[in-house]
């Protein structure tokens, strides 16, 4: 399965990238799985995406939670709690 990753604000800076196209192994099926899978890269990835860290996740432009299942061509975004307005 192929997905698009997006990173914003402090997460983007910590990871040093704003987006990435990624091919996932079969066992990665939810946005929470994607987060865990990316943490396996270690370094900044395991730190920025650590469990318990204040993080918001969007799937296909909608705020969502870890249990949301992903589909081919989907877009998963990771970012800090928002501070607009």
């Amino acid at each position: 399965m192929h997905i698009q990753l997006r990173f914003f604000a402090g997460i983007r800076e910590a990871l040093g990238t704003s987006q990435e196209a990624l091919t996932l192994p079969d066992h990665v099926q939810t946005v929470g799985d994607v987060r865990a899978y990316l943490r396996e890269r270690g370094g900044a990835w395991s730190e920025a995406l650590a469990e318990g860290r204040a993080l918001r996740i969007a799937y296909n432009h909608q705020m969502t939670d870890a249990a949301t299942r992903i589909g081919d061509g989907g877009e998963v975004a990771f970012f800090p709690p928002v501070t607009g307005g």
Partner: peptide, 14 residues
Amino acid sequence: IMDYLKTQAPFWKK
């Protein structure tokens, strides 16, 4: 709308 925007719209200030 403002209260909602503050916590749900994807903006970040630096």
